[in-house]
Design a protein around this nucleic acid. Structure first.
Lengths: 347, 347
DNA sequence: CTGAAAGCGCTTACAG
DNA sequence: CTGAAAGCGCTTACAG
């Protein structure tokens, strides 16, 4: 009968304040409002008018509508970050770094997926409909990037080996993996295993190959079936280790390197459940040095990676790209460092 | 001289495909393209034309531009989630739940802040310029919500005590805190302390007051200065505990309840450094039951909160609001459960 | 069933 | 310095 029941879910309490309303209130054109609201008054708006608009803006509580603005400009102030695993605390630190560099000019949109899953290029392409000002892609696989075929400012994080012309900030995981192998060799281990991540992320491949190579160079032996892989998940890692351990033990394995600390936690957990002495019977190492690794049982020997710095540097590079500034260095590599704890050395 | 060097940062490789291009390609109007692209053909577009448009869309690789669409509709397909602490792994699970309920129709935009910091209402209001389809606010403080004065679909997470008419999904932290107190009393503790979070989040207040009340009811004593607070950070919690411990020890404190597992990790770490025996000399409990708590040294007794479910239910409620469906229940409360581990009971 | 047209809110040459 | 006007890409009454 009437339409008073139409606005159901969300009846707007007050109408949106538009630039036109501000213009009318201040007695100027919307063009002038736009100039003032965007701080482009320099030599284009008289001090008198600028003051009038500023007053009207604060009086009315005007906020530039980013939808209208984006459509007009052709680009939004959104920065999209694509990452395979938000549940990893390491990632939270990366985000913090990104945000600190981004400031408040840009909105950070996180495209997250389920643990260890890479987002599909199709999903991400849909996000491109938001016309992001730039794209940050963490630990991509080569295929994803190719499918994405993004145009516009793009910086990769933790993505080694992607061609020297594509901007990236990397972590020196190769050195970290070598340090791990050297540490094991120095502690007398001769037969070792590797617990890998299941996604074919380049960083995982590098961690694995660098470790295996260095282990071989150092005269350590890696038996058949001593390289296994699971999703980044404590429980699944524990299961995989439980299944592998009898054969490994028989093969004389006394140390296991894990692709991430999370994997290592699974091993520690299962070892405790099974009564395997760490590090006496088995030495365990991780990768990432999560904040919890100082506190696990026992403390976890791990490769510390500068997460916050990674995010910060990547965002800084992206900002330069967005502003059309040249990059001094297309690709950066940040140092890693080995943290030795009780999981490899008796306290 | 020429303008070939104008597009600096990002020369678009191919032009954006617009509805107009699709329309021309298919020999129809843009109105028809819009109808087909949005799946609103039912009784409005002939099968022949629909097929032509579908073909043109896939041939040209057309993707609806969400900026244009949002401006026209007055609302975007973005859902903004505001949360005080992304670095908490608990939060990652909440996000996972939100995403699983949201599906691919909506983009989730995370407004994250630094650890433990609540986002300013001003920041968030700026996000409203993105015209989100809905808002999810995790652990807000009352002031924030008032300042925000958001219109439109809104669901609160972990926000008890906000008036019965505002949609919220809560966690039964009160019961959890009581369980903790009862557990301590049952284990013979008579003098206890509390390590709180520093943000005046309602959930923290509830955890604290429920614990302190239950402790008192159970005849346990809480000395002066036995309630302290720090940011959610392992190191800071460790420092605060280190400073408080001598006086606490003198006062006869034998158990400490922490507002979050992260705080508890700090206590465990410091206790180890100082050679304080856990749980012999001091029993420690957390809250949240993070995945690492099963694996800390010793395992941490904690209140398990259903993070993933929290996110899922909240997103489901929000979707109903967005679709104008009625909510069966305005506020839900999800059960917590006590996990007893080695930090309170000798293994 | 179909298309021309208005309109969402903003920005930016352009003419004055 | 200023404002009228076009245009960004889409959606949706509206008239046919």
């Amino acid at each position: 009968m009437d339409s008073s029941d139409l606005p159901r879910a969300a009846a707007p309490t007050r109408r949106r304040v538009t630039a036109a309303m501000v213009a009318e209130h201040a007695g100027v054109s919307t063009a002038t409002v736009s100039l003032v609201a965007n701080g482009k008054t320099q030599g284009r708006v008289s001090a008198v008018n600028a003051a009038k608009v500023v007053a009207a803006i604060s009086e009315l509580g005007y906020i530039i509508d980013s939808i209208g603005s984006s459509l007009s400009r052709g680009v939004s102030s959104t920065i999209i970050m694509v990452a395979p695993d938000i549940s990893n605390p390491f990632f939270a630190k990366v985000i913090a770094g990104v945000r600190s560099a981004l400031g408040s000019d840009y909105q950070l949109l996180l495209s997250v997926t389920d643990a260890g899953q890479l987002p599909s290029a199709a999903d991400t392409r849909r996000l491109l409909g938001l016309r992001p000002a730039g794209l940050l892609v963490d630990a991509p696989d080569p295929l994803f990037l190719e499918e994405l075929s993004a145009t516009g400012p793009l910086v990769l994080l933790d993505a080694p080996g992607f061609g020297p012309d594509i901007p990236a900030v990397n972590l020196d995981v190769v050195q970290g993996a070598r340090d791990l192998a050297a540490h094991m060799a120095a502690n007398g281990h001769t037969t070792v295993a590797y617990l890998d991540g299941i996604t074919e992320t380049t960083t995982f491949k590098l961690r694995r190959t660098a470790f295996l190579e260095a282990a071989a160079e150092l005269g350590m032996h890696i038996p058949e079936n001593a390289v296994i892989a699971t999703t980044i998940d404590v429980g699944l890692a524990a299961d995989a280790f439980a299944e592998a351990w009898p054969a490994w033990k028989a093969a004389g394995i006394t140390a296991i390197a894990c692709a991430t600390d999370t994997h290592a936690y699974g091993v520690l957990q299962e070892a405790r459940a099974k009564g395997i002495s760490i590090p006496g019977e088995l030495a365990v190492t991780g990768f990432d040095d999560l904040p919890y690794s100082a506190n696990s049982n026992p403390g976890l020997t791990s490769v510390n990676l500068p997460a916050e710095l990674l995010g910060r540097r990547a965002a800084e590079q992206l900002l330069r790209l967005i502003n059309g500034e040249p990059l001094e260095t297309i690709q950066l590599t940040l140092d890693s460092s080995l943290k030795v704890r009780g999981s490899t050395v008796q306290a």
